[in-house]
């Protein structure tokens, strides 16, 4: 939500937005009623050899191990976007991923990002040709920052998501980690994010390693620093465990989007319930 907008809540049957779809979100800007861009809720699916990794248990879908089925389920539930993170170890299995991306693109009617092991424009080109809307780069972009520029020039910034795994060290500073969090660097998270945006990254996917898996809430301070300091959207990831954590990351962390995995997969938080909860707290949400 931009500045100067006082939320006035939702359109109802009776108020001045009568006739508009109930539940749409509006605000006041200089006394003029306007609508706003909504905050996004993004489930993340980890993929290995074309299958979802974490054991999920949904009686509503036939095969929760099938990323297409699970992704479609989330899309129907009102997810705003999906992220598919490929953790396939071997290079030979890339073809499986490409086929999967193609199936996802055929079936799913919301945008999706594919990440994991992307290190060249060729990798990106194949994924986009198969219908991915965006790709995310992490370690390869850090090791070769010119990759970000190359990708932005060739495919446009709008499809280049820079993923950063970050950890707060004892000195209180947030550092960039590579290789899925196994390799520490001496680079500050904010510095790298800011540089990557200058190079052409169109969005930042920020994962706090201190918070990931803890279900104790998102990393508010570093999310806020990036979200307020950078001109591109920031997706907060790691630590979302309950409804109020999401409220916090949008209200205080100023995140543009929030990503989570297992709490959705294990139905600890249901997307429709989460979105209604946030909407009731004046956080603009798309309620289908």
């Amino acid at each position: 939500m931009g500045p100067f907008i006082t939320p006035i809540g939702q359109a109802t049957e009776n108020n001045r937005w009568a006739g508009y779809k109930p539940g749409i979100w509006a605000g006041l800007n200089n006394n003029k009623l306007i609508f706003v861009l909504t905050k996004r809720i993004i489930p993340c699916l980890d993929i290995r050899d074309g299958r979802t990794v974490k054991g999920v248990n949904f009686e509503d879908i036939r095969d929760a191990g099938d990323p297409v089925e699970l992704g479609s389920f989330y899309a129907r539930q009102g997810a705003d976007e999906l992220v598919f993170l490929d953790i396939t170890a071997t290079h030979e299995k890339r073809k499986t991923l490409h086929e999967l991306v193609n199936r996802i693109a055929h079936q799913i009617n919301i945008p999706f990002t594919v990440g994991g092991g992307i290190s060249s424009p060729q990798d990106v080109s194949i994924l986009l040709q198969n219908g991915a809307d965006k790709i995310s780069v992490n370690t390869a972009a850090f090791e070769r920052p010119e990759l970000v520029t190359q990708l932005a020039r060739e495919f446009g910034s709008q499809c280049v998501v820079l993923a950063i795994d970050t950890k707060r060290e004892a000195d209180g500073q947030w550092y960039v980690y590579l290789n899925g969090g196994r390799k520490k660097t001496g680079m500050s998270c904010y510095e790298w994010a800011s540089r990557a945006v200058d190079l052409g990254a169109g969005e930042i996917l920020l994962t706090s390693m201190n918070h990931d898996g803890t279900k104790s809430g998102f990393a508010i301070d570093i999310t806020r620093k990036l979200a307020l300091g950078l001109p591109v959207p920031v997706i907060a990831s790691g630590g979302g465990g309950n409804l109020s954590h999401f409220e916090e990351v949008f209200e205080q962390g100023k995140a543009d989007a929030a990503l989570a995995a297992s709490i959705f997969h294990f139905k600890e938080v249901a997307i429709p319930e989460l979105k209604r909860y946030l909407q009731d707290r004046n956080i603009p949400m798309r309620l289908p």
Partner: peptide
Amino acid sequence: PGTKEWKVPQIGWNN
């Protein structure tokens, strides 16, 4: 954008 709170490009769902 008049201020930094507006992100450009606009990415996401709007009315």
